[in-house]
C-alpha cells in the first residue's frame, strides 16, 4: 500500500538521522530539568557558597500538580521550539533540494504524501513525549509526592493533543512555503500569536488549544476531567484536522517544480 511505503520511508529517515534518539532525549531533559533543580536548590545554593549571613530563603513547598506544570511549561516553550525546528523541513526541504521532483512524478497521491509525513512526525513526538513525561512522573513520585499512573496517562494524552496541533501547524506551513527556516518562523509566530490572543480574549476564547496546559493543571488538582478540558481537546483535534485538510489542498494547488 502506497501510504505505508511513504510512512515507512519517513520512519526509516527519522531513524537514520537519529531523530528517534535525540528528540526523546531532549524532551526527557526538558521534562525533568525544573523538578530536579527545584528540589536540589538548597544544596545548590550551599555548594556555590551559600547565602550571606542573616539572609533567609523560604522555598515554597511544591505539590505534585505544580511539578507537572513545571515540566509542561518547559515543554511548551523550549519543547515546542525544538519540535518545530525538528519538523520544519519535512516537506519544504524535499522541495527545496529537488527530491520531491523524483517522488511526485510517480503516481503518488498528495493526500498520502502529506498524511504519511504527519503520522510519522506524530509517532515520533508522541513517543518522545511519553518517555519525557514518564521521567518527570518518576521524579515527581520519588522527590515530591504521589501522582497516580492514571493522572500521568491523562496528562500525556491531553498534552499530546497540543503537540499534535503544533505538528499540524508546521505541516501546513511546509506546504505553503519551501524554505524550512521560514516554516519555523511562521509556525512560532502563529503559536505565539494564538497565545497572546488567548490571553487577551481569555473570557471569550475559553477553548483555545493554548489553554490545554492550564486545564490539565486543574485536572491534576481536582482529580477529574473537566468538561472544559474535553471541549478544548475536541477543538484542538478539529483544528489539527482542518489544518491537515488545508495542507492537502494547498499542496495540490502548488506547482511542484521551479
Amino acid at each position: 500500500m502506497q501510504w505505508m511505503t511513504l510512512f515507512n520511508k519517513e520512519m526509516m529517515e527519522n531513524w537514520r538521522n537519529k531523530k528517534w534518539i535525540w528528540v526523546p532525549l531532549v524532551l526527557i531533559l526538558l521534562a525533568i530539568l525544573d523538578p530536579i533543580s527545584n528540589y536540589y536548590l538548597p544544596q545548590i545554593i550551599e555548594a556555590v557558597g551559600g547565602l550571606p549571613d542573616g539572609a533567609i530563603i523560604n522555598l515554597p513547598e511544591f505539590a505534585p500538580a505544580d511539578v507537572v506544570m513545571m515540566s509542561l511549561s518547559q515543554l511548551s516553550s523550549l519543547g515546542v521550539l525544538v519540535i518545530v525546528l525538528m519538523a520544519m523541513g519535512t516537506i519544504a526541504s524535499e522541495r527545496k533540494s529537488g527530491v520531491s521532483e523524483l517522488i511526485l512524478v510517480k503516481p503518488v497521491s498528495y493526500r498520502n504524501y502529506i498524511t504519511a509525513k504527519w503520522a510519522a512526525l506524530l509517532a515520533l513526538v508522541w513517543a518522545a513525549l511519553f518517555v519525557g513525561l514518564l521521567a518527570s512522573w518518576y521524579y515527581t513520585n520519588i522527590l515530591y509526592g504521589d501522582l497516580s499512573f492514571k493522572s500521568f496517562l491523562l496528562i500525556f494524552i491531553f498534552y499530546g493533543l497540543w503537540l499534535t496541533f503544533v505538528i499540524s501547524i508546521v505541516i501546513f506551513y511546509n506546504t505553503l512555503v519551501k524554505t524550512p527556516g521560514l516554516v519555523a518562523f511562521l509556525s512560532i509566530l502563529t503559536i505565539m500569536g494564538m497565545s497572546i490572543v488567548t490571553q487577551i480574549f481569555g473570557h471569550i476564547i475559553e477553548w483555545s488549544p493554548n489553554n490545554l496546559s492550564s486545564y490539565i493543571y486543574e485536572m491534576v488538582i481536582a482529580g477529574e476531567v473537566s468538561s472544559d478540558l474535553v471541549a478544548t481537546s475536541v477543538v484542538a483535534i478539529a483544528l489539527s484536522l482542518i489544518l491537515l485538510i488545508a495542507s492537502i489542498f494547498t499542496f495540490k494547488a502548488k506547482e511542484l517544480a521551479g
Binding site: Q2, T5, L102, I103, V105, K106, P107
Partner: peptide, 30 residues
C-alpha cells in the same frame, strides 16, 4: 504519471538511502 518516467536535469535523491532502497521505494510508489 503511471505511464510516464521522468529524469530531471539534476536528479536529487535521499542521500541516506542506498541505491537499491531508493529504487524499491520508487517502484512501490508506482
Amino acid at each position: 504519471r503511471k505511464y510516464i518516467g521522468y529524469l530531471p536535469q539534476y536528479p536529487v535523491f535521499h542521500p541516506w538511502m542506498t541505491g537499491m532502497e531508493f529504487l524499491v521505494y520508487s517502484g512501490q510508489l508506482a
